[in-house]
Design a protein around this nucleic acid. Structure first.
Length: 288
DNA sequence: CTTGGGTCCTGTGCGC
DNA sequence: TGCGCACAGGACCCAA
């Protein structure tokens, strides 16, 4: 799953191909992704022009000239592949194996007016799509309870202090909760907590306003740096399907179990623990 | 209301 | 080379 930086990278990759262009034909290869697709899904897409591609948290928002917005969540394994003349030209893709067998999980195909095809491929099928009135987009159940965008001014130390007040949940879980802040996932929470010097296991409510202030700063910083790097790609590419993020080469703790802590004066090693079923990586010496 | 655990689905990599 | 198991970037749902 792509987290905010990966979704933002996908958005930026789709804009030159799709924005301002008409969907000549939409093809739906199955009735559902994670949930059932809406009634007449392909018909409602076909013939519309994509006016703008936006993002909210980990959701892509494609505003159509029909007055509806196509909402897309990539889940864990969802990706868009762009084909020109049947050849992959560009992949908004953070996984391996674009080549041979990928068509098996090609669930939604958008034929664009200039001959490009945007193919939504999602092996694990944790992804989701829906159509909703653009004017009421904030009311959609995917978006209505979502916390502030971490790169916006609404996400600040006062807000974080307030939303964490009296919370007993581990800090890690609080940051993964999309209702508190949008777009963070396992990688960037681990990285941000390392940068902040805060333990993932302490309760969210135990943070001082000073801690919250520092946390806001490092979250913004890690997200900005990851976006600049084109996101993180967890496996090596074998196909020739376009640009690949490289932020994974700068991970300080994520997937670094057993390595020496990268803080210069720290003698610790990176630990891996499991919190609510998911791996947490951190340095127990310098994260308190 | 908050919190923790199970669950959906497929693919990959590792130890044996 | 094959097999079984652990694990994967998410988030909903339900029970306590």
């Amino acid at each position: 799953m792509p987290e905010l930086p990966e979704v933002e990278t996908v958005r930026r990759g789709l804009i030159p191909v799709m924005e301002g262009r008409r969907i000549v034909k939409a093809i739906q290869n199955r009735p559902d992704l994670r949930w059932p697709l809406p009634e007449n899904f392909a018909e409602r897409l076909t013939g519309t022009t994509i006016e703008r591609i936006g993002r909210r948290g980990k959701y892509l928002l494609l505003d159509l000239d029909s007055g509806e917005t196509l909402i897309v969540h990539l889940g864990m394994s969802g990706r868009f592949l762009i084909y020109t003349d049947g050849i992959i030209r560009k992949g908004a893709d953070f996984h391996q194996s674009v080549g041979s067998q990928s068509s098996k999980h090609d669930h939604i195909i958008l034929e664009i007016e200039d001959g490009n095809r945007a193919v939504f491929n999602d092996a694990r099928r944790f992804g989701a799509m829906d159509l909703w009135q653009t004017a009421l987009i904030g009311d959609h159940k995917f978006l209505s309870g979502m916390g502030p965008e971490p790169l916006s001014n609404h996400f600040n130390s006062e807000y974080l202090t307030k939303t964490f007040a009296n919370r007993k949940v581990p800090l890690k879980a609080a940051l993964l909760d999309q209702r508190r802040v949008a777009g963070l996932g396992n990688i960037y929470v681990c990285e941000a907590l390392f940068d902040a010097g805060l333990s993932p296991t302490r309760s969210a409510g135990s943070l001082s306003s000073r801690d919250c202030s520092r946390l806001v700063d490092v979250i913004r910083d890690v997200l900005r740096r990851a976006i600049d790097a084109g996101g993180s790609s967890l496996r090596d590419f074998h196909g020739a399907s376009g640009e690949l993020g490289y932020f994974q080469h700068t991970f300080k703790v994520y997937d670094q179990e057993g390595k020496k802590c990268s803080k210069s004066k720290c003698s610790g090693t990176i630990d891996r623990i499991v919190q609510s079923g998911r791996s947490t990586y951190f340095c127990a010496i310098c994260q308190r």
